[in-house]
């Protein structure tokens, strides 16, 4: 938003000439370096991500395993309730709900934390010259750590019902990796936009809430009369499927993977353009 800092026309011209970083894409190398150097700060963000979780559960007897426990309670209650409502076989429906819920927790956490990543890191952004992407890595890492606590709910349930997926299940790791790669651009982009426009986190929160209900998590896609628009055009659905389908013993459809790959490519493209251009303003905005 350079135009907003100008006070007079001649100065605006001068500003354009003097911009040390050049305009637009000329600043791309700096943005890329920020993202690469942020990765290099892994000791910092790894430690802080673990600390974030520990902090939340300090002085509690079972600590971070509250994550696992509360997820277990949620899955058990909703799975049984909806299984009964829809008259579904619990031994099949419960593992389905467990896998869906655990992955949904990851997706929604990533998007919501991503939207406030620079806002919550305000103190650090203003005090430390660490690459801005460091804060995003920390958020992504924290959410992955939470996910690896929650996944045991799914493991326990599928073992109990004897529906463990076998080797196909390993494909879920690929799905999780795809989610993480996308979470990075989402954090950079939403974090940046939210730093400037403070309504965005609220919008994101309400979109995420609605999406939970229109995404097949507590209901099944085949309950829909036909392949509905809400599925094909729901980005969350595709991210969910690339990780969930393998956990349930299926291979994600080519459409799922195509959608995810398209979102990865276009998301990173848009993010790099915007991040390159406005990265330097984040410290001013927070």
């Amino acid at each position: 938003m350079q135009s907003q800092v100008t006070t007079s026309k001649p100065e605006r011209r001068q500003q354009r000439d003097l911009l040390p970083q050049g305009n637009g894409l000329a600043r791309l190398p700096r943005a890329l370096r920020d993202i690469a150097e942020g990765w290099g700060q892994y000791q910092l963000w790894l430690t802080m991500a673990m600390q974030d979780i520990r902090k939340r559960y300090r002085r509690s007897k079972i600590g971070p395993f509250w994550l696992t426990l509360s997820m277990g309670i949620m899955v058990g209650a909703l799975g049984l309730l909806y299984g009964t409502l829809f008259k579904l076989d619990v031994s099949e429906f419960l593992p389905y709900v467990a896998a869906g819920f655990v992955i949904w927790g990851l997706l929604s956490g990533l998007v919501q934390d991503g939207a406030v990543t620079f806002i919550t890191a305000e103190g650090l952004v203003k005090q430390l010259p660490v690459p801005l992407s460091t804060h995003v890595y920390r958020d992504v890492c924290r959410n992955l750590l939470i996910f690896f606590h929650n996944i045991w709910v799914y493991v326990a349930i599928s073992l109990w019902f004897g529906s463990f997926p076998g080797l196909v299940g390993l494909l879920a790791l690929l799905g999780i990796a795809a989610i993480a790669v996308n979470a990075l651009w989402i954090g950079l982009l939403l974090g940046l936009l939210s730093a400037r426009f403070r309504d965005i986190p609220q919008i994101v929160a309400s979109v995420v809430q609605v999406t939970f209900f229109i995404t097949p998590i507590i209901w099944k896609a085949d309950m829909l009369p036909e392949r509905a628009v809400v599925l094909v055009w729901n980005p969350f659905y595709h991210f969910l499927e690339v990780a969930r389908a393998p956990l349930l013993g299926d291979v994600p459809t080519p459409l799922n993977w195509l959608a995810v790959m398209l979102m990865t490519a276009s998301g990173w493209l848009v993010t790099l353009v915007i991040f390159a251009r406005y990265r330097w303003r984040i410290a001013y905005w927070v």
Binding site: Q2, V5, E11, Q14, Q15, L18, L19, P20, Q21, V125, K126, Q127, L128, P129, W280, A283, Y284
Partner: peptide
């Protein structure tokens, strides 16, 4: 500290910077 990149002007800094604010 390279936290604020200025809108106008140039900044050249050689060396590791430690800000203690």
């Amino acid at each position: 500290a390279r936290i604020y990149e200025p809108a106008v002007g140039s900044v050249q800094i050689q060396g590791d910077v430690a800000p203690l604010f």
